[in-house]
Design a protein around this nucleic acid. Structure first.
Lengths: 225, 225
DNA sequence: GTCTATATGGGGATAGAC
DNA sequence: GTCTATCCCCATATAGAC
């Protein structure tokens, strides 16, 4: 049985993901976790630091899985570059996998993660920072090799956009079902992953075949200005 | 001159965008607006409905501009389809333009809009709904024509991802500056637009038809399931 | 480590004079 | 329409017994 601390983490992960940080009171958390109200402040010192701990735990789990996938792919491809498709997959797939500790709801932390990017309450603590650095050190070179035609600046831009698409998918996938009049089913994990990966890969590769979009040649993209 | 109601709208637009809905008190709003505390409830009945009004006002402004742009592009292209690039541009560009009523800060509503998608407090009121419908009725056919190779289901998926990329850019562009160690400058509006448009267009077109994306050796795009 | 009880403060909303 | 004063609730956080 999870001890008090873990119960709190698991309950708050779910609640924050569902309702957002401000909308969830400590009372709601402790009730859901079956622990005493004062336990949160005893174990985490404050509500903010609880959120902090939550993210740190989640991001670490996440990056461990990502790097494991990358390791596998790199082994598979020997000295050649790992194709972009697989790199994107390695980064994104774990975000749709994380089960927190509740086996029934598979998307709790992912939803929370989707919210994180627009959650100013979260500050990067040292543990999380070093974790993110490790992640970057592993994936950046791999991406560079896989996309030799994309200059570093663009690689940042595009990765940033990719994060946005992913975060939005994690946080608001329900919206898609409405917008598409039921045509798209975001609860189908594998389909979602496939569509998202295809979109991101295309965006990352954009125009990397032949022409650069720098001033000079206008190529197919005529800007009427 | 802005009357009380508008002062409240403008002040709250800025504050909500900067700090988020819950983090901004009515007292902060009325102080910033230079009006009395009770004025908010007098004019908007509640804090939630203030947010509502804010979104309705913003979305209407936004869609008016978008449709005007589309009109212009369609006139320009006669009976032929408007290229995807321009459609994307017509949708996205106004989001980076909106100045609210504060001439000095150009991104207030846009940032707020970026947050909206993960803001459960917002419910679509009738005015906003009909507005969004008009928007869809104008742009959906145009997109279909511009992307004949993309099945409707995928068009929804991809538009959804595009929204995510855009929202993220609007809401957290500051993040990019850090992630890229200063290499990318998200305050440069025109560059941001160009990069974002290129990314989205590539994602929308992904694997459609023949004419684009030859990424050399990794171009093994196994389609079909 | 866990609980009860409480301190302390801020929040949204309103009543009612002007 | 605008203001003052206030109500009342609910939040986080802590003190101190067990």
């Amino acid at each position: 049985m999870a001890d008090t601390k873990d119960s709190i983490l698991n309950a708050s992960e779910r609640l924050f993901a569902e309702r957002g940080f401000d909308a969830v009171s400590l009372r709601a958390i402790t009730t859901a976790a079956g622990v005493n109200l004062a336990a949160v402040n005893y174990h985490f010192h404050s509500k903010k630091q609880l959120l902090q701990a939550l993210f740190t735990r989640g991001v670490q789990k996440l990056n461990r899985k990502r790097i494991a996938l990358l390791d596998a792919y790199e082994a598979e491809h020997g000295k050649g570059p790992v194709p972009v498709e697989k790199l994107v997959r390695a980064i994104i797939e774990p975000m749709f996998d994380i089960t927190g500790s509740l086996s029934k709801d598979s998307k709790t932390f992912s939803m929370l993660l989707g919210r994180m990017y627009s959650t100013p309450e979260v500050r990067l603590d040292p543990a999380m920072l070093s974790d993110i650095e490790n992640f970057g050190k592993r994936f950046e070179p791999a991406l560079r090799r896989a996309l030799p035609g994309v200059v570093p600046e663009d690689l940042y831009w595009r990765s940033f956009f990719a994060i946005g698409a992913t975060a939005h998918t994690l946080a608001s996938s329900q919206l898609l079902q409405n917008l598409s009049y039921g045509l798209c089913n975001p609860d189908d994990r594998e389909t979602t992953l496939k569509k998202l990966t295809a979109f991101i890969v295309a965006g990352l590769k954009a125009g990397s075949g032949i022409k650069q979009k720098k001033a000079g040649k206008t190529g197919t993209n005529r800007r009427g200005k």
